[in-house]
Design a protein around this nucleic acid. Structure first.
Length: 184
DNA sequence: AGGATGATTGCCT
DNA sequence: GGCAATCATCCTC
């Protein structure tokens, strides 16, 4: 069951990002509704795609609606949803709702608000690795379920970047206790 | 071939 | 708040 088609993703990343808040992400049945995402596109100096395609970022130039997974600081995985060529949405946080016990096993028995409150944490909790790079999002192990209700969405500058710091392409569910950092 | 770097996290003070 | 961990990737020589 999955009603987010490639058409949904074949749009500017910032538009897709906003529409992803509240969408439930499951990987092998583990996950919950997205509460925080960020958009990146090719004209954006903060984006991995800014200087063109390389072996690492090739998924960003592949079909919309597929995953782009990369390793950061030699330690953590980060999951993105590919949009228009050279653009993607970084999945930063979700509300742990489905199969929470599995997430706690993977993360080390932490409180629920620490399970998926950051891009690296979320990948650890959901078991996302480089093995998921390039996979389509409309097939297992991925499931994307439309938002059950509308949300009050806050926007602001993106986290952890040194270029493009003024671009307000961080989108979050306002007031959620599951964010990587509070929205200002 | 060598070196700097990173869309982070968690532990320490 | 500060900083170490840890390594694939990418740029430069």
């Amino acid at each position: 069951m999955n009603s987010l088609t490639p058409t949904f993703f074949h749009r500017p990343a910032a538009d897709v990002a906003r529409d992803l808040i509240g969408v439930t992400l499951l990987v092998d049945g583990v996950g919950g509704p997205l509460v925080e995402v960020e958009a990146y596109d090719q004209a954006d100096p903060a984006s991995h795609s800014f200087n063109g395609a390389t072996p690492r970022n090739s998924a960003m130039f592949g079909p919309a609606g597929h995953a782009y997974v990369y390793k950061i600081y030699g330690i953590h995985w980060c999951l993105n949803f590919v949009c228009q060529p050279g653009s993607a949405v970084l999945i930063r946080a979700l509300e742990p709702l489905h199969w929470v016990s599995r997430m706690q096993e993977r993360r080390g028995g932490l409180s629920e608000r620490q399970l998926c409150s950051g891009p690296g944490k979320l990948c650890q909790a959901l078991g996302v690795t480089i093995a998921h790079n390039g996979l389509p999002l409309d097939a297992l192990p991925f499931e994307l379920l439309p938002a059950a209700e509308s949300h009050d969405i806050a926007t602001g500058p993106r986290i952890g970047i040194t270029k493009g710091v003024e671009t307000p392409w961080r989108f979050a569910r306002r007031g959620s206790p599951f964010l990587s950092k509070p929205m200002r």
